[in-house]
């Protein structure tokens, strides 16, 4: 991105009829956070733009007295553009902060991607390709290079180096994974893990009742009917929590599954069929 201030090209605001409020533009020029920053800064150019904006604002006021709406709009637009130019001149810190933030985010991204690349390369069943390992070394070198630029304050160059490194690493990672299907099977280390899973499944179905079916449940008759299985579900859930409390997860899981079934029954009563 070019570092010099951009020329602001503007649509003809007098035709658009937007932002034509003298009071608002006055506030923008004198009271806004950015306007105050111009006042605080020792930047004579920015102050000059602010003075120019005030001049255009006076023109707008004069035009308003004469009842010339078109001239008001034109003058206000000039005032806005002038104050924006001034603001841009004192915005240097903002830009620098953002570029630093961008760099650090990108660096973090690259680190995550690199970790993923290392892991996937080792998992790869089709054998090791020495070129894949080379990409990782290359990435690390580029990161050091970028950091050197960053330390020298050359933020744009630092960012570009990271971007290029990211792209080649991504290319390599895509090559390792493209065209595959991986199955994450449902497997629980412990009974407690399975219990936690069932708890969340129960929460999920309860949430459907409270969101999608909220309106239906507010209906007194259908609501009453749905209450029957829902009360049972609540009761079973409490029972399951007690069973889990005494570490009887085996039973707690079964009880929770029953509870979820009752919620599903209520959901189906409301006319929405979901698989169990």
């Amino acid at each position: 991105m070019a570092d010099e201030p951009r020329r602001i090209i503007t649509a003809d605001a007098s035709k658009l009829g937007v932002g034509q409020n003298i009071g608002f533009v006055e506030k923008l020029i004198h009271e806004s956070a950015a306007a105050k920053q111009i006042l605080k800064s020792d930047n004579p150019e920015a102050r000059a733009f602010q003075e120019k904006a005030i001049m255009h604002l006076d023109e707008a006021r004069a035009a308003e007295k004469q009842g010339n709406a078109e001239a008001v709009a034109k003058a206000l637009n000039k005032a806005k553009l002038a104050i924006f130019m001034g603001m841009r001149l004192v915005g240097g810190k903002v830009v620098k902060d953002k570029k630093q933030e961008n760099y650090n985010k990108k660096r973090h991204s690259l680190e995550s991607l690199l970790a993923a690349h290392k892991r996937i390369r080792k998992e790869n069943e089709s054998g090791q390709d020495s070129r894949d390992a080379e990409v990782e070394t290359h990435t690390q070198k580029r990161m050091q290079e970028a950091q050197a630029y960053y330390d020298k304050g050359e933020l744009i160059k630092a960012g570009d180096v990271l971007n290029n490194a990211y792209l080649s690493l991504k290319l390599s990672l895509v090559k390792l994974r493209d065209g595959k299907t991986l199955v994450r099977s449902l497997h629980f280390e412990t009974r407690e893990d399975e219990y936690r899973y069932e708890l969340r499944r129960n929460d999920t179905h309860n949430m459907l009742i409270n969101t999608v079916l909220k309106k239906k449940r507010e209906d007194p008759r259908l609501g009453k009917l749905m209450d029957i299985p829902l009360k049972e579900a609540d009761k079973l859930r409490t029972e399951a929590e007690q069973q889990a409390g005494s570490e009887n997860y085996e039973a707690a899981i079964k009880t929770l599954e029953e509870s979820t079934k009752h919620i599903i029954r209520a959901i189906r009563m409301a006319g929405i069929f979901i698989p169990g």
Binding site: S32, A33, V94, V95
Partner: peptide, 9 residues
């Protein structure tokens, strides 16, 4: 905010 928008961010 307006300052960082005007500054191109």
């Amino acid at each position: 905010n307006m300052l960082n928008i005007i500054s191109g961010e």
